[in-house]
Amino acid sequence: MFAAPLPMHIPDGFLSVAVSIVFWVISVIVIGISLARVNRDLGERQVPVMGVLAAAIFAGQMLNFSVTGGTSGHLLGAALATILLGPWAAVLVMTCVVAIQALIFQDGGLLVLGANLFNMAILGPFVAYPVYKLIQRISGGKPWGVFVGGGVAAWASILVASLSCAFQIALSGTSPANVAIPAMAGIHALIGLGEALITVGALSLVYAARRDLLQTGSAQPVRNNTAVWVGGSLLTLALVILSPLASSNPDGLEWVAEQAGFLETARDPSYNIIPDYVLPGISNEATATILAGVVGAFIVLAAALALAYARRKRSA
């Protein structure tokens, strides 16, 4: 019931160590900046506001509507949070949501959490913000700017986040770029429509009940968000332009994957400890596996026996 609404939470094992570390570094830096910015803008109010809204987004991801044949649309909420709270606060709120999902509910892995944070908590708001603001500016402050802007921002945030997710997987050599990128983009172009519809629905309620939150917003200071404008636009453009390139020339990414994946790639088995053939017809590989299996079975057995012993002692 509380499982991930989107196939976008990467589990551990799917990203190479190098890719995981790079995205951890990027995410930590951006989250650090967001903390400082929100601290300045909201001051001491930020703990209750951010905490309660993070809980609300987490719960809001359970809201669904039936699409067809048992499938349903869901809310991720990055764009909604960005429009109502501003990009920096949205980064923090989504960071808490994605972190709790990984830490407590195993929605997404721990070593790859940096990458998941980058896609959903950072890229989401960073894409949604410039798109929304641009369309709102074009509309000249008319109501349609809020709804069209919100819808397009929601759709774009999902699509671009999924592109980034596909890139990370391709860079890790877990899936070829020419399959992963079009597949992820195709699925999420549809899922993004659900996100757009539900975001527009939420915005129309807020527009009816608390228009003040949407008009230059008391909840979101309009000060200097150039970093988000520039960073968000550049990231969006880069991913949108690189995606077709990478899907048509997967060799490039594969080469990077090979370079970045050196930590996990098997080396030449030149350091073999066990002689090549112990028994005729059985390779050292198989022997080692069987050996490890026997040792492993002993470890597990020992653990079970220790437990049984401890239990008997406790009940005695």
């Binding site: 909420g77 539900i198 629905g201 807020v206 909840a219």
Partner: peptide
Amino acid sequence: LTWRARVAGGMAGSLFLRSLERSDRI
């Protein structure tokens, strides 16, 4: 379909507003 999505969106919006008000009380 769009109406169903709008209803779900309305639920999200009202959840959001009530949370904002709750955070004030907290």
